[in-house]
Design a protein around this nucleic acid. Structure first.
Lengths: 195, 195, 195, 195
DNA sequence: GATGAATGAGGGTTCATTCAT
DNA sequence: TATGAATGAACCCTCATTCAT
């Protein structure tokens, strides 16, 4: 997907700058001026492309989500078995470029606004729905139908919980530990013959 | 523990008001004025008792944590077996008065500040250390030593993940579902004879 | 020196407004809002041009100093003999537009902040250094080298003391009286043939 | 003069504390709380003894003035000739305990308020009147009547100017230099036979 | 007399947002 | 398209002052 129009390039720059500023400054500290500076633009231009601050950060969240989605899709495309697809989903969620304290800080800041920003809530809903759908499409071939929903939710929650841990205590939780946790869960939860 | 001194009573009122305002307004929206009004006091008095806004919310977090701790302790005191202690810890974390979307929203707002507020980070560390210590003291009698740490982290993460889910999508995740998730995890992860 | 850029014009307006408000209100009373109103602008714009209050008043002091400097330079350019240069310096310091109680009040307010504002202290140092240098370049031709420094300091102190008197008791000290004092000093201190 | 009543002792403590806080903090920074703390008292007590902040600092100025007055009187009592009395007045004004940058800073802060505080203005008037009267009573025996007023004003202004210099540039002006300046002035201004 | 709780006004400062250029 | 001037609202915080104990 080429971004031919200059305006679309500018918008992407700003979305990314917004997300990056969020990593260090949090929502309150992420002023339009800082975002503009970070993107090498002037303050006024930000509101030229986005109606207001909340729209900017809505798009920042969308972009971060799209990035994650891409990673998942790419890995899913290479997966052959249901189990591989499960692993693809999980590993995509812990890719090194994503599973960073600073990235988690930005997500935390966005999630903290979800209760008061319907747009952000909507994005969250979409993210969760996709995750569930992806997981179910794999689990369906591994577990009895009655258990799929539960396990899908467990996997999602475990991923989220590990991410949260990374955000709250940067030191002490490595990517490998997180992945080991996920595998440990699957080993005990999925039928023995599977793993 | 009686709070005899009037100042201590006032401080508690304000801590609680702060936490409650946080539930609806988020960190940025939780104005000192709103907190004061919510506590039936004047704006000035808040800073008479707390040096500044961040100290107020630091104490609000401490209080919320103390409240959770109490619930855990109380249930632990009634537990007889290691497994009961495990369940005590888990159930305390999902007590109805705590496991509410609004409460979760407040926690989310506080957690989102952790990366930039060393005091909040410290409290988070304490919370996590206590949770781990509590879980280990029960798991030790149930699992081989080599697995305890991992399972303790999994339980913590699962709890956190379920909480996060509640915060992000209020509808669709009941307390019972959450507890069922936890039990499902234990059933599959702990030795069969235990459960 | 033309101020072509609009921002530079605005800054000058604000500097001057600051100095004028200072005359009536003193440092504590010289609110940013009053300064803005006096300049016919909004409070926000003041901090758009000056990082903070103290920077504004630092520039106000600089401007007032520049104004005095100009007056001195102009008179010095017309002076032919060393004695005339001496008189030029002195008379510039007592020009009617400067030697006003209100102007002195503003200076007093600024000077009172010098001990706690390094920037203002720096400006004071510059002012004094220039005054000394100007005086010495004239006195050198009138007095033995060993006496020049002392007399320069005496003249400076006498000028300052008379200004202070004007500021503390507006009535009772006219410009003419002040100039007479200065002349009386010179008559008695400089060699007889000079005057 | 004994201060028998406890209340009078307390008032004096507070006056002095006020003056001392003024030395470091300036008028705006000299809050009632700091003054109270400096005097080892509680905030409330300050306004128990003084109607309001300005009254407190008015009394602080009075006290500082009284202290100077005492020094002058003491030296005058030991003076035998008119010239000695002149020297007594001058030397009292440069006594080591007074001629300190910090003391000067406090005076500067008070003087900066004079234009807006009639009470302080009144004290200033009294100070000046006494100084003039003291000087005249000595000069009268040394100079022709027509010159006395002028010389008295010159001496006063020179003293004030040297004090101001001390306040604005602490380093570089010693007590000895200041006294030398005063003597230099007298040597050149008074009849030769006198000195 | 003494304390410190409580108030409320006001200040500096920050920022999203608007607008003219 | 892009800039940055300008506004105004709101916030945190400070403090003099009042009052109950």
């Amino acid at each position: 997907m080429r971004l031919t129009k200059i305006s679309e390039i500018r918008r992407r720059e700003l979305r990314r700058a917004a997300f990056e500023v969020l990593q260090k400054e949090g929502m309150a500290g992420a002023t339009l001026e800082k975002v503009a500076t970070h993107a090498g633009a002037s303050k006024g231009i930000v509101l030229h492309y986005f109606a207001n601050k909340q729209e900017l950060f809505e798009h920042a969240m969308r972009e971060a989500n799209a990035s994650l989605k891409e990673a998942v899709v790419e890995r899913l495309n290479r997966a052959r078995t249901p189990l591989e697809r499960l692993e693809a989903i999980i590993e995509a969620n812990f890719e090194e470029r994503f599973f960073q304290p600073s990235v988690c800080h930005a997500w935390l800041s966005l999630c903290a606004e979800v209760p008061r920003e319907p747009q952000l809530a909507r994005i969250q809903t979409i993210i969760h729905a996709r995750m569930r759908s992806n997981l179910l499409s794999a689990l369906t071939h591994i577990l009895p139908a009655s258990e799929c929903e539960d396990v899908a939710l467990a996997i999602t929650s475990l991923i989220d919980g590990l991410w949260l841990r990374l955000g709250l205590q940067s030191e002490g939780l490595t990517r490998d530990m997180a992945l080991a946790q996920m595998r440990d869960y699957l080993v005990h939860r999925l039928p023995k013959t599977q793993t």
